[in-house]
Amino acid sequence: MEQKIPTMAQMAAEGKEPEILFWVGCAGSFDERAQRITRDICKILQHVGISFAVLGTEESCTGDPAKRAGNEFLFQMQAMMNIQVLDGYNIKKIVTGCPHCFNTIRNEYPALGGNYEVIHHSQLIQQLIDEGKLKAEGGESFKGRKITFHDPCYLGRGNNVYEAPRRALEILDADLVEMKRCKSNGLCCGAGGAQMFKEPEPGKKDINDERMLDVLEAKASVIASGCPFCMTMFTDGVKHIEKEQEIKVLDIAEITVKANGL
């Protein structure tokens, strides 16, 4: 990164409190593809001049995959340790780069004593667009390109966030197309509920391959998403149908960064 990414520990040492904490998440921290999205979210934050920080090595898994898999013990251990860290830094507002982290911290931490205002990065981008702080100029043009948005389950159905990511795409002057199964009818990418970490059960095909039929039918050249797990599933899905040249899989944050030449 050109500019240094501040951590909470550094900020606290300087006696400063950031406006917002960027919760990176495990995929955003370790998965190479998702790391690029993480850096792009930071670029957006730096571009608009929001004071933010990350937890760095003090961050730990929210416990989402453990909870969905039925391991409530492990989930609550993770949650309570994270809440201790977050409260230790007096954190009030969090933006996440992942719908799973977003859902877990926003909805499931309050019962364990962790109360924060949590938004997903697509909501942050929407806010910045609405406030006029973020535009789509000075970078790559998406004009006329067919873009379709895949609703991550834990953003869409899970939390009724359907419009924010679409707002981020609307300003591109692109040709937005909806897949047959979209919004509350959206089809899962296949990775939720801890499926990301196991082989699928025996069946006729994989779920991401089924989703590729919708992408092909919509004739989209860009699949936009807002979830690192969906990202992995679709990158594989596009490979399976051998359309890596024709169809790009991009996060909302990456598209925003490209459109603004950040």
């Binding site: 495990c26 921290s29 995959p65 970490f197």
Partner: peptide
């Protein structure tokens, strides 16, 4: 995955010390 989360705070086998390497 549970074991990884318990030991390194992530569902994959990466060290927690490497968590900030993306920057």
């Amino acid at each position: 995955m549970f074991g990884n989360m318990e030991n390194n705070g992530a569902p994959w086998k990466y060290s927690q010390a490497d968590r900030f390497n993306w920057a």
